[in-house]
Design a protein around this nucleic acid. Sequence first.
DNA 1: TAGGCCATCTGGTCCT
DNA 2: AGGACCAGATGGCCTA
Length: 422
Amino acid sequence: MFGTNFEDYCDFNDSICSNDSGFERSYADSLATPTSVHSTPLKHDTSDLGISLTPKKENVRRKLFSDEYEFPFQEPVDIKTFEDNIPSVNSTSTPVKSKEKKPKDPTKPKRKYANGKNRVTRCKSPTQIMKIKRNRRIKANDRERNRMHMLNEALDRLRCVLPTFPEDTKLTKIETLRFAHNYIFALSQTLESLDNINSGNAPPEGITLNYEKLQNYSIAGEKVTKDAFRDMFLVPNKSEDYTGDGSYRSFQGFSKPFPNGSNFMQTSEGVLINVGNVTVSVNNNGGNCITSTTGSGFFTHPSSFGDDLTQNNYYDQKTVATCNNYDEMYDTGLQNNVEGYFNQTNYEIFKNAFETAAKSRRHPKMDDYHSNYSNYNSTAGYGQNGKYYCGVDAAYAQTNIYYNQRYHRDFYNNRSIINTQI
DNA sequence: TAGGCCATCTGGTCCT
DNA sequence: AGGACCAGATGGCCTA
């Protein structure tokens, strides 16, 4: 069986390969490459979420297992030591070159080696060729296995930053990708709503995005449409999230890490807001900070030192108890209230914070997709069973609508509400 | 037991 | 020649 018999790896022997065939290097690689199914996946620095900030050459494929990676699987084995530990080597019919070097004859002309197309490699028997191919196949399998491990590792990282319901639910691969797509879309809508609030086009109401519903959409394979997104905006559950002191203090779908059992904590020095892996602290005297699993960043804003941080909740001033749905809330004329949480000062605090974080991220380009998937047709779509069929570009075409045309954003531009508060 | 999910192997293709 | 990537095949595990 290959993988256990030394002869399976013997085709690098001098008697088989020409000295300059380059196969010796392959053998060395094979020794440094994991060959066991139970090999430990590559160790990586996970602190950067797998995102390399090192500039890459355009149109150059990455080499996954370049020298910068450390292979913890197996110590490099010295060929001589390897051979010495396997007695059967010398008992094979394969001629073994004498280990004693003959003194060179200075009068003998040096052998000239052909290069390139003129080079003629030594003939190999079918058995030898088979062994070479088998050895390559084993190495390719190892690379493929590790490549999939890295892909799964990246998926796990992605799962870590997505909220799940319940918390211990593990999304499948396809669910993770679908939910991530929809989640990003929902977050972008949230940020867009901040813009609208700042411009006075939308009221600072207590509508919250229902991430659980968003996840259910993703698991079912459904893409978030404008109607779906509208469906995910709920009137907040007053009994759960609306407190008697007028604070709306919960981000649905996220843990509530603060001692008061909420995502929001206000002290005499400022406020702390935690949403998933990100905590935003706004200090009354400056020193504002964003902390996430990938690091921390400080930011300041001239207008962040106002007295707005302690003002009352919107719900202190306007009741929503009689509103049964979104339209009712919107139609109550409350949108004219601009003295709530999302006043200019607080909005700009958030805006600066998110922009600071966003500057370190590369935004995807539409051209990136088209260059990679230009060969796909647009025949795909969702079947009646709710599953999505083929056609990456069809899906992406809709994504383009999401991020370019934003027709659905326009639909909600004047109506989307966020439930955060400062 | 059927179906879903997953890991792995495999051969082919593209690229350097 | 070799690495990265992809998709099909296969078998194991789990659950309804």
